[in-house]
């Protein structure tokens, strides 16, 4: 097991965001966390990356406890994070944004890594000298993913990658996630687009008010009547 979260709880002040939540990600797996707004799926992802403090519970990566690591200490271990809302550096160029991903990280062959990422996202290649702020939201999402991939992660944490994207870009982003996964990177995905997420994911967790109330393969969750009614708009 690559990532294992055991009975984790997170509080914002007095408010419990997630309580006693357990989930795991195997090597080479895509795992989706879905659920309505405020159910705690983003918080769970942030907890994995050390961006919020755990109240209780344990998180293991590759068998090693990573409870108290700062976000920057996750990156060398092989965990990278694509933040919600893309969060690029708008006044830097596409190239500079990619370089920032690997910046001051030891033993990285930045040039070769950038080439790989531009091959994965060809539309960024044409725009590599442009400022990140002028890209379309879809291209920005690709750049945000590319920036995280610069760190050659074993586990990629993606927070709402389809948020605010045009439908055609949503398709592209999910295709790219599969491609990234096929090259050997595990992905933990938080998504409000539940149907798309479950279609690409090997397994899924369904969140509801701070708890996980279902866990199954992506395919089974897609077929589940309960999930359909709650999140997929009763198709």
């Amino acid at each position: 097991m690559l990532l294992e979260a055991k009975n984790i709880s997170v509080c914002y002040g007095a408010v419990k965001a997630i309580e006693d939540v357990s989930f795991n990600v195997d090597a080479c797996e895509i795992v989706a966390m879905i659920g309505p707004n405020g159910a705690g799926k983003s918080t769970a992802l942030k907890a994995v990356f050390g961006m919020v403090d755990l109240k209780s519970g344990d998180i293991y990566f590759d068998g090693e406890n990573i409870n108290n690591l700062r976000p920057d200490e996750h990156v060398p271990k092989g965990i990278s994070h694509v933040p919600e809302g893309r969060r690029l550096f708008p006044s830097m160029t596409v190239m500079e944004n990619l370089e920032m991903g690997a910046f001051l990280q030891k033993g990285n062959n930045t040039g070769a890594e950038i080439e790989k990422i531009l091959t994965l996202f060809p539309s960024l290649k044409e725009r590599r000298r442009q400022k990140a702020g002028v890209l379309s939201t879809g291209e920005q999402q690709m750049l945000a993913m590319g920036r995280a991939l610069m760190q050659k992660p074993r586990l990629l944490l993606a927070d709402e990658p389809s948020l605010g994207l045009s439908p055609s870009y949503v398709d592209i982003i999910f295709e790219k996630l599969i491609e990234i996964n096929k090259s050997g990177t595990s992905i933990l995905l938080v998504e409000q687009n539940a149907r798309m997420a479950l279609e690409v994911a090997h397994r899924g967790y369904v969140f509801e008010i701070g708890r996980i109330f279902m866990e199954d393969t992506g395919r089974n969750l897609l077929k589940s009547e309960e999930v359909k009614r709650a999140f997929l708009g009763g198709i």
Partner: peptide, 15 residues
């Protein structure tokens, strides 16, 4: 510069 532009992003790329 990256901290000035977006602190959360800098954090998320491991700075």
């Amino acid at each position: 510069k990256s901290i000035r532009e977006d602190e959360v992003a800098s954090l998320s790329i491991g700075k």
